[in-house]
Design a protein around this nucleic acid. Structure first.
Length: 563
RNA sequence: UGGGCCGUCGACAAGCGGUAAGUCACAUGGUUUUGGUCCAUGCAUUCAGGGGUUCGAAUCCUCUCGGCCCAACCA
């Protein structure tokens, strides 16, 4: 992709351009991706990562990876490692700037003390229920806590005791002293710290008070010198609070800018739904190729480049949107069309015997590796008397627009010969067992010997030379575009596509694919893009279908069915 | 309902007062030893709706309608 295509205009870039013009931040741009290590990353996170990363890159700025690990009961090191792995794979580079909110706990504590001393924070000893009740509602103001006017000395003392572990969970919290009547619920004396006697995956038992998101996040950004803190739309209401804390402390004040998160149709993205699928074993783990997780997409055969291109195409704006899954499919096809070597594989084999072909002859046929890339060269493919073709490529009683093999019809076997079907061999049940065909020796290479035309070119594979493989055909996870507004009594579970995974055995592949390493991507000609699965071995090759090729024939059939 | 934000083609999305980019999808035709790729063409007289300002409005003002977010000791 061209550089100029990479820097597509959006409102965040406009803001940054403006800032640069005004000399704000000394002309620096510094962004960050701040995941909480409490789950696995999905394609939606890829947008957040890539938006932050690409902006940093395009403005010659810096990009940090920071784990927002402020809630030990939800977080785990397992997630930290998975997230690091996924972001690396995606291609966002934080260089040496990997940070953890938990590294700033001491500093945050000191800032909190500073706020208490300024009379801007207090220890509240109401119960969680009382606090909730006294917060009021969106239409009615809250009421002040009875503890709101504690002296600075008392607050300091209590806060220190909170830290020292003198109190039970839930007995006290530290709160900002703002305005219980604010129309913005978040400004009604927001909680800054809660007591949690829980071990943290990094700080162990060093702390028993943990900072809340709003208090922590701005400080993290400030400490790291972030200039533009890009986050998703639901944090818009938090911005006044983000600003308030930083203003009270009078420290470096990054600008929070919110953009719409990515939604994709025909799948699910919420943590809750993903977790449910994994825990109920409806999929095989977080990296199941049916899932929109980054590890799932990776295993499915997506390339980082395809995801980068996809995110770029989607753009950045403030309007809620649901991107069509077809755009994701297009993005991976676009990349693989250029890169993936072609190979002839028969998924659903039907035996073809070339009756006029010498019994023990084998010819090494030249096949092009990638018509999009002359540098990819050619390879030899064995041709013999017994071959397999795709069952779908033969019809005994073909409809009008069916161009493939049929009784009495001649087609081309790609790179090999013109073949004519003469006889259909069936078993007692009428099941087609084999096709008896003849070849035209003069058409070697698949070239028309006398200007004769055929309407179809089929892929094929020699029965004696093919290897067996398991092939997993993946499709969209969900059968309907949107599972968010379902009728009463229905859940997304009712719309899981039973055909999102179809496992095929005894598929026939070119022999060299036995040695394909996990992750190896290729095109099975006329079928789609496939990659060797993580579990693939030389003795038991397994290939995953990343995406089908565009299929005008299938579309035609569907339209005929409709009319 | 108080507050905040949003509404441009089926889906994304440019546009920033001078007369609707681009991509995907869809359709048609051409090329083709993948019904793939590629190429060409078509696809918003109109920007949620009304009113206003202006020589001129998707862009400014105003009202109306519709959608999303906020009342976890989650992030």
């Amino acid at each position: 992709m061209e550089d100029k295509d990479r820097t597509k205009s959006n409102f965040i870039r406009d803001i940054i351009d403006q800032d640069l013009q005004n000399g704000k931040n000394d002309g620096k741009v510094h962004t960050r991706f701040p995941p909480e290590p409490n789950g696995h990353l999905h394609i939606g996170h890829a947008k957040a990562i890539l938006v932050n990363y690409s902006i940093a890159q395009d403005y010659n700025g810096k990009f940090n990876l920071r784990f927002d690990d402020t809630n030990p009961i939800k977080e785990d090191e397992e997630f930290v490692n998975a997230i690091i792995n996924d972001i690396k794979w995606l291609g966002a580079d934080w260089e040496d700037r990997l940070f953890y909110a938990s590294d700033y706990f001491e500093q945050m504590y000191e800032y909190a003390v500073q706020l208490i001393k300024a009379g801007k924070a207090f220890v509240d000893s109401q119960s969680a229920e009382e606090i909730r009740a006294n917060r009021g509602s969106v239409t009615s103001p809250g009421v002040n806590s009875p503890f709101r006017d504690r002296s600075i000395e008392e607050n300091l003392d209590l806060f220190e005791k909170m830290r020292d572990g003198d109190f039970e969970d839930g007995s006290h919290v530290l709160r900002g002293k703002i305005d219980m009547a604010s129309p913005n619920m978040l400004m009604r004396d927001p909680l800054m710290y809660r007591i949690r006697h829980t071990a943290h995956h990094r700080t162990g038992n060093r702390w028993c008070i943990y900072p809340m998101y709003d208090w922590a996040h701005g400080l993290e950004d400030s400490i790291e010198g972030i200039t533009h803190s890009l986050c998703s739309l639901e944090f818009q209401a938090h911005r006044p609070l983000y600003d308030w804390y930083l203003d009270q402390l009078n420290v470096h004040h990054p600008q929070q800018i919110e953009f719409a998160r990515l939604n994709l149709n025909y799948t699910v993205m919420s943590k809750r739904k993903l977790l449910e699928l994994v825990e109920e074993n409806l999929v095989n783990g977080w990296d199941d190729p049916r899932l929109p997780t980054l590890s799932g997409l990776r295993r499915r055969g997506f390339t980082p480049e395809a995801i980068q291109n996809f995110i770029h195409k989607v753009g950045v704006a403030k309007a809620h949107s649901v991107v069509d899954y077809a755009l994701l499919e297009h993005s991976i096809r676009e990349v693989l069309n250029k890169q993936a070597p072609r190979v002839m594989s028969v998924l659903n084999p039907l035996k073809v015997v070339i009756t006029n072909y010498p019994e023990d002859q084998v010819e090494e046929i030249d096949a092009v590796n990638n018509p999009e890339d002359p540098e990819a060269g050619t390879r030899k493919v064995p041709f013999s008397k017994e071959l397999y073709i795709e069952r779908e490529d033969f019809m005994e009683d073909p409809p009008k627009k069916f161009f493939r093999l049929a009784p009495g019809r001649e087609v081309r076997f790609r790179y090999a010969y013109f073949i004519t079907c003469n006889e259909v061999i069936k078993d007692g049940n009428g099941e087609i067992l084999e096709l008896q065909c003849t070849y035209d020796p003069a058409s070697k290479g698949g070239k028309s010997p006398d200007g004769r035309k055929v309407k179809a070119t089929l892929h094929w594979i020699s029965t004696a030379h093919a290897i067996d493989a398991e092939v997993r055909l993946y499709d969209r996870l969900i059968t309907i575009p949107d599972t968010n507004n379902l009728e009463e009594g229905k859940t997304f579970m009712d719309f899981i596509n039973p055909d999102a995974l179809k496992v095929l055995h005894n598929c026939k592949l070119e022999a060299h694919l036995a040695k394909a390493e996990a992750g190896f991507r290729c095109q099975f000609e006329r079928l789609g893009y496939f990659c060797a699965d993580l579990d693939s071995t030389e003795s038991k090759p397994i290939f995953n279908r990343t995406v089908t090729l565009r299929d005008t024939w299938a579309r035609l059939q569907k339209n005929i069915g409709k009319n």
